[in-house]
């Protein structure tokens, strides 16, 4: 009975978890960015831990595309997602247009997160753990939001597409795609940074 009334409890909960993780990571990164701005010498060296060396991620132009640290975007947007997730978790049926708008904005955010991930991997040549947490959490939240929006038919999609997608979601295709996606991320990081991640062992051997 309880399950039938709110079948998406676990999905909303996962969304809450992901958005809170993203918010925490954004806060840490924002504080770092402020420290860096206060004391430019703080990160003006290259750390031995090569993967997160040089403060490269934090001082690159990609780190503040819009003229302020990217992490501020997380501080502005993630609280809204936290509120959506809490509302959904307590059984509120949110207006269709509101959820659709959230989907659009969050999709843009996801695109931005992956652009940054790509830049960090291939242009900056460095990764930071908190940035990775943002990437993973954003991905997870996007999948949960999409799942809910498809189930609730919030996206104003053509009927054929809507029914195909809702069948896919009912069968759990989205969960498989999310897990595969996250594993692909892990694989990409290991392939690109494996040598550096396991550097001490590599130098000894």
């Amino acid at each position: 009975m309880h399950r039938a009334r709110r079948p998406d409890t676990a999905v909303w909960a996962a969304m809450l978890l992901g958005s809170v993780a993203s918010l925490v990571a954004s806060l840490v990164l924002s504080v770092d960015a402020l420290r860096l701005a206060e004391d430019p010498h703080a990160a003006l060296s290259c750390d031995f831990n090569a993967v997160i060396s040089c403060g490269t991620v934090a001082t690159s132009w990609q780190a503040s595309v819009l003229g302020f640290p990217n992490a501020f975007l997380g501080l502005m947007t993630e609280p809204a997602v936290v509120v959506l997730a809490v509302a959904g978790l307590s059984g509120v049926r949110l207006p269709r247009s509101m959820m659709c708008a959230a989907q659009v904005v969050y999709t843009v955010g996801l695109g931005f997160a992956y652009w940054l991930f790509h830049q960090a991997m291939f242009s900056i040549g460095a990764l930071c753990p908190w940035c990775l947490l943002v990437t993973v959490a954003t991905t997870s939240v996007w999948f949960e939001m999409t799942r809910i929006n498809i189930r609730q038919d919030n996206l104003f999609l053509p009927r054929g597409l809507q029914s195909a997608l809702s069948t896919a979601v009912r069968l759990g295709v989205d969960v498989v795609v999310l897990v595969a996606w996250l594993l692909l991320l892990v694989l990409a990081v290991v392939l690109r940074y494996g040598d550096a991640l396991f550097a001490p062992a590599a130098v000894q051997g």
């Binding site: 595969a180 594993l183 694989l187 290991v190 040598d195 396991f198 062992a201 051997g205």
Partner: peptide, 25 residues
């Protein structure tokens, strides 16, 4: 299908980790 994909990816990650920590860098 999902199980197959996941197992395949886990295997690929294991291979990548093993080759990285062997230090054929």
């Amino acid at each position: 299908t999902g199980a197959l994909v996941v197992v395949g990816l886990l295997a690929a990650i294991a291979v990548a980790v093993a080759s990285a920590s062997r230090g054929d860098g």
